[in-house]
Nucleic acid binder design. Structure first.
Lengths: 209, 209
DNA sequence: TAGATTGTTAATCGATTAACAATC
DNA sequence: TAGATTGTTAATCGATTAACAATC
């Protein structure tokens, strides 16, 4: 990306993308900024401003061409460039994320899962294998040497009590981005970026005002 | 709440709460705004400003009393007032959320789950029963008449293709808040509030800058 | 005392909304 | 033409950061 796009804009563009996918499904060819704004309960001039960042232009009196705008968003946000990720914790949440059909469409490719439960080892979830957590470093090295890709993202869905220890393993395995679904705050070196999913916070935000 | 608190502040307060829980675990009695700020990579004056909204005061030279501040946040955000919710979709994600130990601590009480898979009906997840989706209205009425509580929140974890239909059932069942984990935009009356979890957006935000 | 920390005000920064000319 | 819509600039609003006196 040439110009940095703020997180808020990225999130909104993703929502526009969902709406556009739905347009395609319904064979709706054009959509206006007002219609998008109405669905998301936001201001229509904001929609136009966000869209102005993409390589797409609207038609006066008609709106935006849905398939065109969809592609422009995909290009802007770089959905093509697949990024590989590990999932730590193959419980319900980890499994749900491994199965999340959309992730692949948006450039997130799950390389493998890890768990400490011996019963789960070697099982497949959505075609992805579950490895013992102790083999994290080994699998990361294998991905790099054999599959020629560096896995820089990890999705953390272990129990809260195991979160910090897991994060430390991830740092050792040269992971650069940790997407933290546990309700804990991780302490990691500055070179590693943590994104706290903070489900509880989202719930409180949304029911408290 | 007397003064409305912005969503951003609510989210940060929740993160502070996580940090404070960890302090208790480690028997750390005091924590400074700088220490909290360092863990979350934010500005320390912002931490102090957020805390100023709570009924808690810090000590010059020492910081904030962790158990005290924790309680003050709980009071401010209303963790005591339990709110009941239904989960639609008892797949991996729905199950994960039903098991999420923390939700109860933060005032979210799962009343029941719903699914269309006959094999899942009547099973228990974390002590919560799974009902056929067709009984949504019936269960809602039962909660109101027998358990004297109105369930106003629904957590939507059904497949994307079933999302809009499910939302319509929820509207009929008088649900007021829909926490939408599906990658779709729901079309609902203005009286119903939708919170889009937008996992894909969060992922893109965090790996794109 | 010197140093660390809070609480709060002022300054800055960024995001949202309003407005409207241009277009078809 | 009248009406609807984009694209963009200016105005507003809100959130973050800087700064510092007060305190222990």
């Amino acid at each position: 990306m040439s110009v940095p796009i703020s997180g808020k804009v990225i999130k909104r563009l993703t929502l526009y993308h969902h709406i556009l996918s739905d347009c395609l499904l319904k064979a709706k060819e054009y959509i206006s900024s007002q219609q998008i704004a109405e669905l998301l309960k936001i201001d229509d001039s904001q929609v136009r401003k966000d869209i102005a960042l993409c390589a797409a232009s609207g038609k006066t009196n008609v709106g935006y061409n849905a398939p065109e705008l969809k592609k422009a968003i995909e290009q802007l946000l770089g959905f093509q460039a697949q990024k590989a990720a590990f999932i730590l914790g193959a419980g319900n949440l980890g499994s749900a994320l491994a199965k999340h059909a959309d992730f692949a469409d948006y450039g997130l490719d799950i390389a493998a899962l890890f768990d400490i439960d011996p019963a789960k080892i070697d099982r497949l979830i959505n075609g992805k294998k579950i490895y013992p957590l102790s083999e994290l470093h080994h699998v990361a090295t294998h991905e790099q040497l054999v599959n020629k890709r560096r896995v820089e993202i990890a999705i953390l869905t272990v129990p809260a009590s195991a979160a910090q220890k897991s994060a430390e393993l991830l740092v050792q395995a040269q992971i650069k981005y940790i997407w933290n679904f546990t309700p804990t705050i991780l302490s990691v070196p500055d070179s590693v970026r943590v994104c706290n999913e903070n489900l509880v916070g989202n719930f409180l935000e949304f029911t408290n005002n």
